[in-house]
Protein backbone atom coordinates (compact mmCIF):
# COMPACT_ATOMS: atom_id res chain seq x y z
CA UNK A 1 0.00 0.00 0.00
CA UNK A 2 2.69 2.47 1.01
CA UNK A 3 5.07 1.03 -1.54
CA UNK A 4 3.10 2.59 -4.35
CA UNK A 5 3.77 6.10 -3.16
CA UNK A 6 6.58 7.55 -5.27
CA UNK A 7 6.15 11.17 -4.17
CA UNK A 8 8.57 11.81 -1.32
CA UNK A 9 11.00 9.03 -2.16
CA UNK A 10 14.66 9.48 -2.91
CA UNK A 11 16.31 7.65 -5.79
CA UNK A 12 20.11 7.74 -5.59
CA UNK A 13 21.80 8.80 -8.79
CA UNK A 14 24.50 10.97 -10.22
CA UNK A 15 22.89 13.28 -12.74
CA UNK A 16 23.26 17.02 -13.01
CA UNK A 17 20.03 17.45 -11.07
CA UNK A 18 21.25 15.14 -8.33
CA UNK A 19 24.41 17.15 -7.84
CA UNK A 20 22.71 20.52 -7.54
CA UNK A 21 22.69 22.27 -4.19
CA UNK A 22 19.45 21.33 -2.36
CA UNK A 23 18.82 25.01 -1.62
CA UNK A 24 18.84 25.80 -5.33
CA UNK A 25 16.51 22.90 -6.04
CA UNK A 26 14.13 23.78 -3.23
CA UNK A 27 13.93 27.46 -4.19
CA UNK A 28 13.59 26.58 -7.86
CA UNK A 29 10.76 24.11 -7.20
CA UNK A 30 8.79 26.58 -5.11
CA UNK A 31 9.46 29.29 -7.63
CA UNK A 32 8.25 27.03 -10.42
CA UNK A 33 5.03 26.34 -8.56
CA UNK A 34 4.53 30.09 -8.17
CA UNK A 35 5.15 31.02 -11.79
CA UNK A 36 3.00 28.23 -13.13
CA UNK A 37 0.08 30.47 -12.21
CA UNK A 38 1.39 33.10 -14.60
CA UNK A 39 0.72 30.85 -17.55
CA UNK A 40 -2.68 31.61 -19.06
CA UNK A 41 -2.67 30.46 -22.66
CA UNK A 42 -1.85 27.37 -24.63
CA UNK A 43 1.60 28.51 -25.68
CA UNK A 44 2.72 29.34 -22.16
CA UNK A 45 1.62 25.90 -20.95
CA UNK A 46 3.39 24.22 -23.85
CA UNK A 47 6.51 26.18 -23.02
CA UNK A 48 6.39 25.22 -19.32
CA UNK A 49 5.65 21.64 -20.27
CA UNK A 50 8.67 21.49 -22.54
CA UNK A 51 10.84 23.02 -19.84
CA UNK A 52 9.60 20.47 -17.27
CA UNK A 53 10.29 17.59 -19.61
CA UNK A 54 13.77 18.97 -20.17
CA UNK A 55 14.38 19.02 -16.39
CA UNK A 56 13.07 15.46 -16.04
CA UNK A 57 15.31 14.37 -18.88
CA UNK A 58 18.31 15.98 -17.16
CA UNK A 59 17.69 13.85 -14.06
CA UNK A 60 18.17 10.64 -16.13
CA UNK A 61 15.35 9.04 -14.15
CA UNK A 62 12.95 6.76 -15.98
CA UNK A 63 9.88 8.75 -17.01
CA UNK A 64 7.59 6.01 -15.70
CA UNK A 65 8.51 7.11 -12.19
CA UNK A 66 7.01 10.52 -12.63
CA UNK A 67 3.88 9.05 -14.13
CA UNK A 68 3.60 6.80 -11.10
CA UNK A 69 3.93 9.89 -8.92
CA UNK A 70 0.79 11.28 -10.58
CA UNK A 71 -1.16 8.03 -10.30
CA UNK A 72 -2.24 8.16 -6.63
CA UNK A 73 -3.52 11.71 -7.15
CA UNK A 74 -5.26 11.09 -10.45
CA UNK A 75 -8.76 10.96 -8.93
CA UNK A 76 -8.25 14.23 -7.10
CA UNK A 77 -7.04 15.81 -10.34
CA UNK A 78 -9.90 14.43 -12.41
CA UNK A 79 -12.42 15.54 -9.80
CA UNK A 80 -11.09 19.09 -9.81
CA UNK A 81 -10.92 19.15 -13.59
CA UNK A 82 -14.48 17.83 -13.83
CA UNK A 83 -15.71 20.56 -11.47
CA UNK A 84 -14.04 23.16 -13.64
CA UNK A 85 -15.29 21.71 -16.89
CA UNK A 86 -18.91 21.38 -15.85
CA UNK A 87 -19.43 24.50 -13.77
CA UNK A 88 -17.51 27.25 -15.57
CA UNK A 89 -19.65 29.57 -17.63
CA UNK A 90 -18.57 31.87 -20.43
CA UNK A 91 -17.69 31.61 -24.07
CA UNK A 92 -19.55 29.38 -26.46
CA UNK A 93 -21.94 26.89 -24.87
CA UNK A 94 -21.70 23.41 -26.40
CA UNK A 95 -24.02 21.47 -24.14
CA UNK A 96 -26.28 22.23 -21.22
CA UNK A 97 -28.23 20.09 -18.77
CA UNK A 98 -29.56 21.66 -15.58
CA UNK A 99 -26.66 23.20 -13.68
CA UNK A 100 -24.14 21.27 -15.76
CA UNK A 101 -22.80 22.91 -18.86
CA UNK A 102 -19.98 22.38 -21.25
CA UNK A 103 -18.51 25.69 -22.37
CA UNK A 104 -15.46 26.91 -24.21
CA UNK A 105 -14.02 28.52 -21.08
CA UNK A 106 -14.81 25.46 -19.04
CA UNK A 107 -12.91 23.14 -21.32
CA UNK A 108 -9.98 25.53 -21.46
CA UNK A 109 -9.86 25.95 -17.68
CA UNK A 110 -10.13 22.21 -17.19
CA UNK A 111 -7.23 21.58 -19.51
CA UNK A 112 -5.10 24.26 -17.84
CA UNK A 113 -5.81 22.98 -14.35
CA UNK A 114 -4.92 19.49 -15.45
CA UNK A 115 -1.61 20.77 -16.85
CA UNK A 116 -0.92 22.71 -13.66
CA UNK A 117 -1.48 19.69 -11.46
CA UNK A 118 0.66 17.41 -13.57
CA UNK A 119 3.51 19.89 -13.93
CA UNK A 120 3.54 20.68 -10.20
CA UNK A 121 3.58 16.98 -9.33
CA UNK A 122 6.32 16.31 -11.89
CA UNK A 123 8.51 19.06 -10.48
CA UNK A 124 8.01 18.16 -6.83
CA UNK A 125 8.57 14.49 -7.62
CA UNK A 126 11.76 15.53 -9.37
CA UNK A 127 12.83 17.43 -6.25
CA UNK A 128 12.25 14.54 -3.86
CA UNK A 129 13.55 11.84 -6.19
CA UNK A 130 16.86 13.63 -6.65
CA UNK A 131 17.41 15.04 -3.15
CA UNK A 132 18.08 13.00 -0.01
CA UNK A 133 15.61 13.96 2.75
CA UNK A 134 18.39 15.10 5.05
CA UNK A 135 19.78 17.46 2.41
CA UNK A 136 16.28 18.87 2.07
CA UNK A 137 15.99 19.51 5.77
CA UNK A 138 19.41 21.19 5.73
CA UNK A 139 18.23 23.39 2.91
CA UNK A 140 15.06 24.28 4.82
CA UNK A 141 17.11 25.16 7.88
CA UNK A 142 19.34 27.42 5.82
CA UNK A 143 16.45 29.12 4.08
CA UNK A 144 14.61 29.69 7.37
CA UNK A 145 17.63 31.36 8.96
CA UNK A 146 16.50 34.93 8.20
CA UNK A 147 13.50 34.26 10.47
CA UNK A 148 15.70 33.72 13.51
CA UNK A 149 15.61 37.37 14.69
CA UNK A 150 11.82 37.07 14.62
CA UNK A 151 12.08 34.46 17.41
CA UNK A 152 11.30 31.55 15.13
CA UNK A 153 13.03 28.46 16.62
CA UNK A 154 14.81 27.60 13.39
CA UNK A 155 17.21 25.06 14.87
CA UNK A 156 14.45 23.19 16.70
CA UNK A 157 12.27 23.10 13.61
CA UNK A 158 15.05 21.71 11.50
CA UNK A 159 16.05 19.20 14.18
CA UNK A 160 12.48 17.95 14.42
CA UNK A 161 12.27 17.84 10.67
CA UNK A 162 15.40 15.79 10.24
CA UNK A 163 14.44 13.40 13.05
CA UNK A 164 10.98 13.04 11.59
CA UNK A 165 12.38 12.33 8.13
CA UNK A 166 14.86 9.85 9.54
CA UNK A 167 12.12 7.91 11.31
CA UNK A 168 9.58 7.77 8.51
CA UNK A 169 10.95 4.48 7.08
CA UNK A 170 11.48 3.06 10.58
CA UNK A 171 7.90 3.80 11.55
CA UNK A 172 6.64 2.36 8.27
CA UNK A 173 8.51 -0.87 8.98
CA UNK A 174 7.14 -0.91 12.49
CA UNK A 175 3.61 -0.37 11.19
CA UNK A 176 4.00 -3.24 8.78
CA UNK A 177 5.35 -5.47 11.54
CA UNK A 178 2.57 -4.74 14.01
CA UNK A 179 -0.04 -5.08 11.29
CA UNK A 180 1.28 -8.53 10.46
CA UNK A 181 1.39 -9.54 14.10
CA UNK A 182 -2.22 -8.47 14.61
CA UNK A 183 -3.34 -10.10 11.37
CA UNK A 184 -1.78 -13.31 12.68
CA UNK A 185 -4.00 -12.84 15.73
CA UNK A 186 -7.08 -12.65 13.53
CA UNK A 187 -7.55 -8.94 12.84
CA UNK A 188 -8.98 -8.10 9.41
CA UNK A 189 -7.69 -4.72 8.32
CA UNK A 190 -9.79 -2.95 5.74
CA UNK A 191 -12.72 -5.33 5.89
CA UNK A 192 -16.28 -4.87 7.05
CA UNK A 193 -18.16 -1.58 7.41
CA UNK A 194 -16.69 1.77 8.38
CA UNK A 195 -17.03 1.22 12.15
CA UNK A 196 -15.47 -2.24 11.98
CA UNK A 197 -12.63 -0.84 9.90
CA UNK A 198 -12.00 1.92 12.41
CA UNK A 199 -12.11 -0.52 15.31
CA UNK A 200 -9.55 -2.72 13.57
CA UNK A 201 -7.11 0.18 13.56
CA UNK A 202 -6.93 0.40 17.37
CA UNK A 203 -4.67 -2.67 17.80
CA UNK A 204 -2.35 -1.00 15.32
CA UNK A 205 -2.43 2.58 16.56
CA UNK A 206 -1.92 1.98 20.26
CA UNK A 207 1.24 -0.11 19.88
CA UNK A 208 2.56 2.41 17.36
CA UNK A 209 2.04 5.32 19.75
CA UNK A 210 3.52 3.40 22.65
CA UNK A 211 6.58 2.46 20.66
CA UNK A 212 6.95 6.05 19.44
CA UNK A 213 6.92 7.27 23.04
CA UNK A 214 9.53 4.70 23.99
CA UNK A 215 11.60 5.54 20.97
CA UNK A 216 11.44 9.27 21.69
CA UNK A 217 12.45 8.64 25.28
CA UNK A 218 15.42 6.50 24.25
CA UNK A 219 16.49 8.93 21.56
CA UNK A 220 16.37 11.91 23.94
CA UNK A 221 18.45 10.04 26.51
CA UNK A 222 20.97 8.98 23.88
CA UNK A 223 21.23 12.54 22.58
CA UNK A 224 21.79 13.96 26.06
CA UNK A 225 24.38 11.29 26.78
CA UNK A 226 26.23 12.46 23.71
CA UNK A 227 26.30 16.05 24.91
CA UNK A 228 23.43 17.63 23.02
CA UNK A 229 22.37 20.86 24.72
CA UNK A 230 20.45 22.65 22.01
CA UNK A 231 21.38 24.53 18.89
CA UNK A 232 23.71 27.17 20.35
CA UNK A 233 27.39 26.66 19.73
CA UNK A 234 26.99 23.63 17.53
CA UNK A 235 29.11 23.18 14.43
CA UNK A 236 27.87 21.53 11.27
CA UNK A 237 28.99 18.25 9.77
CA UNK A 238 27.11 18.47 6.50
CA UNK A 239 27.97 21.75 4.83
CA UNK A 240 26.13 22.87 1.73
CA UNK A 241 28.21 24.15 -1.18
CA UNK A 242 26.81 26.67 -3.62
CA UNK A 243 28.49 26.41 -7.00
CA UNK A 244 28.24 28.05 -10.42
CA UNK A 245 25.72 25.51 -11.71
CA UNK A 246 23.36 26.47 -8.90
CA UNK A 247 23.62 30.12 -9.91
CA UNK A 248 22.93 29.05 -13.49
CA UNK A 249 19.77 27.26 -12.34
CA UNK A 250 18.51 30.39 -10.64
CA UNK A 251 19.36 32.47 -13.72
CA UNK A 252 17.53 29.94 -15.92
CA UNK A 253 14.44 30.46 -13.84
CA UNK A 254 14.78 34.25 -14.21
CA UNK A 255 14.96 33.83 -17.99
CA UNK A 256 12.02 31.42 -17.81
CA UNK A 257 9.96 34.06 -16.03
CA UNK A 258 10.84 36.67 -18.62
CA UNK A 259 9.87 34.41 -21.53
CA UNK A 260 6.67 33.46 -19.76
CA UNK A 261 5.72 37.10 -19.20
CA UNK A 262 6.28 37.67 -22.91
CA UNK A 263 4.15 34.84 -24.27
CA UNK A 264 1.28 35.03 -21.81
CA UNK A 265 -1.75 37.12 -22.73
Amino acid sequence: MMNKLILGRYLPGDSLVHRLDPRAKLVASFYFIAIIFLANNLWSYLFLGAFTLFCLWLSKIDFGFFLRGVKPLIWLILFTVALQVFFTSGGEVYWKWGVFQLTEFGLKNGLFIFCRFVLIIFMSTLLTLTTPPLALSDAIEYLLRPLKPLKVPVHEISLMLSIALRFVPTLMDETEKIMNAQRARGVDFGEGNLIQKMKAVIPLLIPLFVSSFNRADDLATAMEARGYQGGDGRTKYRILHWSTKDTIVILTFAVLTAVLMYIRN
Partner: peptide, 16 residues
Protein backbone atom coordinates in the same frame (compact mmCIF):
# COMPACT_ATOMS: atom_id res chain seq x y z
CA UNK B 1 -4.28 -17.98 10.90
CA UNK B 2 -6.02 -19.69 13.79
CA UNK B 3 -4.30 -22.99 13.07
CA UNK B 4 -0.88 -21.48 12.49
CA UNK B 5 0.06 -19.06 15.26
CA UNK B 6 3.10 -16.86 14.74
CA UNK B 7 5.15 -15.29 17.49
CA UNK B 8 7.04 -12.53 15.70
CA UNK B 9 10.38 -11.07 16.73
CA UNK B 10 9.96 -8.83 19.77
CA UNK B 11 6.27 -9.71 20.09
CA UNK B 12 5.88 -7.37 23.09
CA UNK B 13 5.33 -4.56 20.57
CA UNK B 14 1.94 -6.03 19.65
CA UNK B 15 0.34 -5.51 23.09
CA UNK B 16 -2.35 -2.88 23.18
Amino acid sequence: RQKVGIVFQFPESQLF
